[in-house]
Amino acid sequence: MPGAVFWGQLMNDRVLRVQDLAVHFKVREGLLFNSKTYTLKAVNGVSFELNAGETLGIVGESGCGKSTLARAILGLIKPTRGRVLWLGEDLGKLDEEALRKRREDLQIVFQDPLAALNPRMTVRDIIAEPLWTFYPRIARVQVDERVRGMMKMVGLLPNQINRYPHEFSGGQCQRIGIARALVLNPKLVVCDEPVSALDVSIQAQIINLLKDLQKKLNLSLVFIAHDLSVVKHISDRVMVLYLGRAMEISSRSALYKRPLHPYTSALIKAVPVPDPKLARIASDTGLTGDMPSPLDPPLGCVFHSRCPYVVKRCELEVPALRRMENGDWVACHCAEELDLTIGKAPT
């Protein structure tokens, strides 16, 4: 049956499946005898899937749980609930040793490039460390060769191999971080705001580099950012997070033309346009107030306290993430009624 073959193919391509993932933290507030314990639901029931060679952008404002989600996917934080399936295997069920082996496939690039590198190690040692960890008996010559190859690949000069991180600029440090993440030939790289600490001209260099490397190595990428304009240039699909919940998961082409969720639409409108004529007629985001404290999120839809389209139902009932006709996902009661096409006046 051709359908079954197609489905089998699809299942094979799907490298990562995250199901109902939740990470809750216990937080204590107040003084000694007066203290109360709260539960901070940093990530609260997030599900998505990722194919081989695909890039998923994750966007959200500070406190929405995007970094926690990144760490939970890689098993750096133990999830409170839910599963992370890597090539069909539940990472949460593996013991320490087995999980360590899987880590060869799963790597991360951090936000602050300088802070993520040990200042007392040379570039050689930094990039080679994963190699020594996974292949302790590897020959030194081989390591050097591999490190030089990686440096060339990310656009560093191999003759700088004996230098220390402080001798490099921010953009170059991020290149070192990327080389370290790729030295083991991983299949999935999670990039946690890899360009937000960099200047615009350098930011573009790093985005282009990641894009090239992904094509060359057929990597699956999870690219986290707080800004929709950065994500647009690298993602195939985009997930929008708000207070630990996925508001929308859409293909890039659909999301930027006609977002399904009011929060996505507000995020798009909030991005400043570098064009004086367009900026002056820029539309209001329609959002009021600040993001509520994640310790005390609104009942019902978490976004209802700031949503310009709020109805009674939003205050009572948590909207489930559901699939729309075009295959995109949204968590909004009114998704069918709203037409949030960008550039169109709200109705």
Binding site: S169, G171, Q172, V200, S201, I202, Q203, A204, Q205, I207, N208, K211, D227, L228, S229, V230, K232, H233, R252, S253, Y256, I268, V271, V273, P274, D275, L278
Partner: peptide, 25 residues
């Protein structure tokens, strides 16, 4: 000119690459 080209924009076609300024300050 380079700075303006390297800004990621929402009103560009999806697959247009970013033009970075090579090198460092």
């Amino acid at each position: 000119k380079g700075l303006l080209k390297s800004v990621p924009r929402l009103d560009q076609p999806d697959d247009s690459g970013l033009e970075a300024i090579p090198g460092n300050p």
